[in-house]
Amino acid sequence: MRTTQHALDLDLAAGKPSLASRTAGVIGVLTAVWRLYRSRCQIARLHDLDDRQLLDMGLKREDLHEAMTSSFFENPGSFLTRASRNRANHFYRGVRHD
């Protein structure tokens, strides 16, 4: 047998994924979508805070707006974390952007 015939035999042996692996994949995707949805709901609640409270967390209203207008499948929480850390770094370096 040639090498190409062996490769074809291996492809046929792999077959379809099992029902359990397909179910686990679907559950994983649904869990990720649910977490993104919950994260967006929590960020929407941040709009209830005033500007001083947001600034205590290192955030501004513009950060909330940008996080909420991002693509649905991007994690808005990581965007807010990055914005807060950048603002804290600028503050401690003596460059304040309020």
Rank of each mutant, 00 (worst) to 15 (best):
M1N: 04
R2N: 05
T3V: 06
T4E: 15
Q5S: 04
L8F: 09
D11N: 12
D11G: 11
L12Y: 12
A14R: 12
G15V: 07
K16T: 12
K16V: 14
P17Q: 08
L19M: 12
A20P: 00
R22V: 09
T23P: 02
A24P: 04
V26W: 06
G28N: 11
G28P: 04
V29S: 15
A32Y: 10
V33W: 12
L36C: 06
Y37P: 01
R38Y: 08
R38L: 14
R38S: 09
R38F: 09
C41F: 03
Q42I: 03
Q42M: 09
Q42E: 14
I43F: 01
R45E: 13
R45L: 07
H47I: 00
H47T: 05
H47E: 14
D48M: 04
L49E: 05
D51Y: 02
R52Q: 15
Q53C: 12
Q53H: 13
Q53R: 12
L54C: 04
D56F: 11
D56W: 13
K60L: 10
K60M: 11
E62D: 09
D63Q: 01
E66D: 09
A67M: 06
A67S: 03
T69Y: 07
S70E: 08
S71L: 12
S71D: 10
F72D: 09
F72W: 04
F73H: 09
F73R: 10
F73A: 11
E74P: 00
N75D: 15
S78Y: 08
S78R: 14
F79A: 00
L80F: 01
L80Y: 00
T81S: 07
A83R: 05
S84A: 15
S84L: 08
R85W: 07
R85G: 04
N86S: 10
R87D: 00
R87I: 02
A88E: 13
N89E: 04
N89C: 06
N89W: 05
H90C: 09
H90E: 10
H90F: 03
R93Y: 03
R93A: 05
G94R: 02
R96I: 08
R96D: 11
H97Y: 08
D98E: 11
